[in-house]
Design a protein around this nucleic acid. Structure first.
Length: 380
DNA sequence: CTAGAACTACACTAGTTTCC
DNA sequence: GGAAACTAGTGTAGTTCTAG
């Protein structure tokens, strides 16, 4: 089937021009001990954005996906949902396919090349991490020798040894092997495989605050917003006007992101969550209650959720959750609802009550996109 | 009635930050 | 310098609900 026809169908107003954009290089550079730390993330973001260039609110979502979206290794497709539910044959595989094709088209790249154009933050950070790890390994070698010394000659396993994995490798390759590979080589191979797998587990440590940093970086590069607002990343609440310091023995409260309008002093507290779990929906309400209790100016403040969640039920729940007699969130913002459309509608008809609920919220504007939220913010 | 969707709850990994 | 505390998002399993 011709891919471009699907792209046209599901990508809405985004024009797909496969191969148009050159893949940005993954660069390695010197870094301190914390590859995923705030400082290194800030540096990676500075490197990513062209110096002195403004961000177009309508296209900001592209930067979010280029920086943060990743390929699920088990399916080879852009990640939009838990990997177990995305396995071939299961319902979310169809949605992942549709989303993958949509996002490639919307970014103007070939679906087969998408991996080279996204996940820049993590790929650069892990390159830095690998560098730091290589440095550390050599440093610890003398200590390792010292620790193992008393047990010399007892045939203790070497670090990194994984007999089961080794037997899988040798077992499946046996018909093609003239001889058993040297154990040194096998251990090296298993270590590399383990490192490869464990890299993926580190992603969650970057996505959380990395998403907050990315949104802040975008806000700062949109002149109509930046000129009018003070932008705070993970500020203690009492650093914002109109919020008091917590009592001596209670913890200081932080919020993911905050915007304060310099003219009207309107305050917007933002919760940035790449994805949402139902057991953390509770947290939205209790967070808000805490914020509300620290408010001392007697003024309303906005509470906004920015997310890339794809589960329709969770999105609908976020749109519908209430406190007292009004919606909890002033706005619920998805990185790009067109991606949701692509996944839910796709070439294969979708069923399910959650999807219908989520689509209602998109159509009504209750669930908005980063583009319209940023544009509206700039036009105030 | 049944398969799949939705929900719930907890486990897990691996990072940063804080405190001594 | 290192342990403990904290935080993030994801994995996963069991249960309940619901559309066809």
């Amino acid at each position: 089937m011709d891919i471009s026809s699907i792209v046209d169908e599901v990508s809405g107003n985004q024009v797909a021009i496969p191969g148009l954009e050159a893949a940005p290089p993954v660069v390695q550079s010197a870094v301190g001990a914390r590859a995923f730390g705030e400082e290194n993330r800030a540096r990676l973001l500075r490197d990513y954005f062209p110096r002195g260039e403004d961000v177009d609110p309508a296209l900001a979502w592209r930067d979010v996906y280029r920086l943060l979206l990743w390929i699920d290794r088990t399916t080879g497709l852009a990640h939009c949902y838990e990997s177990d539910k995305c396995q071939p044959g299961r319902p979310w595989y169809a949605r992942s396919l549709a989303f993958h094709v949509w996002v490639a088209g919307a970014l103007g790249v070939d679906p087969g090349d998408l991996d080279k154009h996204i996940d820049l933050l993590f790929r650069n950070a892990t390159a830095d991490l690998a560098l730091a790890a290589a440095k550390n390994r050599g440093r610890l070698l003398p200590a390792v020798a010292e620790q193992r010394k008393p047990y010399e000659g007892m045939g203790l396993p070497e670090p990194g040894e994984d007999p089961e994995l080794e037997s899988i490798i040798t077992g499946s390759l046996e018909p093609f092997l003239l001889q058993k590979p040297p154990s040194e080589l096998l251990r090296n191979l298993t270590e590399r495989i383990q490192a490869h797998v464990s890299f993926e587990n580190k992603r969650k440590n970057l996505v959380g605050e990395g998403f907050e940093d990315t949104v802040a970086a975008l806000l700062r590069r949109i002149p109509s917003i930046a000129e009018r607002h003070s932008i705070f990343v993970r500020p203690p609440l009492h650093h914002l006007p109109g919020f008091r310091t917590p009592r001596a023995n209670s913890k200081t409260r932080q919020v993911d992101l905050a915007l304060v309008d310099n003219v009207s002093t309107r305050r917007t507290l933002v919760s940035c969550k790449w994805s949402v779990r139902s057991d953390r929906e509770e947290q939205f309400v209790s967070d808000f209650r805490d914020y509300d209790q620290l408010e001392e100016a007697g003024q309303d403040f906005e509470y906004v959720l920015i997310t890339n969640e794809f589960d329709p039920a969770r999105l609908a729940a976020a749109c519908e959750v209430r406190r007292q007699n009004s919606p909890l969130f002033t706005a619920v913002v998805h990185v790009n609802p067109a991606g949701l459309y692509a996944a839910y509608r796709g070439p294969v008809p979708q069923r399910g009550r959650g999807i219908a609920r989520a689509l209602t919220h998109i159509d009504s504007g209750r669930l908005s996109g980063l583009d319209s939220w940023l544009t509206e913010l700039g036009n105030r």
